[in-house]
């Protein structure tokens, strides 16, 4: 009777451990994708410097455009006046 109990217990243990064994086998498999990368473009570890995310942008689109236009005008004016003065 003791022996039968032991066999039943062992069998039950094996049956109950099957899902865990299968899971362990899945977890321990590293050969699904065997391809060899040529560049890190598509890999992890492509660090983006802290604080550079686009969402942290400080100016709205319109503000930036205004700054761009203003700066272009200022620089163009400076260049124009300097060159004009030199011609004189």
């Amino acid at each position: 009777m003791e022996k039968i109990k032991k066999v039943i217990a062992s069998l039950t243990g094996i049956l109950l451990s099957i899902p865990y064994r299968l899971m362990a086998q899945d977890e321990g498999s590293y050969i699904e994708n065997l391809g060899v990368q040529d560049s890190s473009y598509m890999e992890e570890g492509n660090p983006i410097p802290a604080g550079s995310a686009a969402e942290q942008a400080s100016g709205s689109g319109n503000t930036v455009i205004i700054i761009v236009v203003a700066a272009v005008l200022v620089i163009a004016a400076v260049v124009f006046f300097i060159l004009r003065k030199k011609k004189k």
């Binding site: 942008a57 400080s58 100016g59 930036v64 700054i67 272009v72």
Partner: peptide, 9 residues
């Protein structure tokens, strides 16, 4: 001026 990322800051 023609570099959007730089213009953000």
């Amino acid at each position: 001026l023609f570099w959007p990322f730089a213009l953000q800051n």
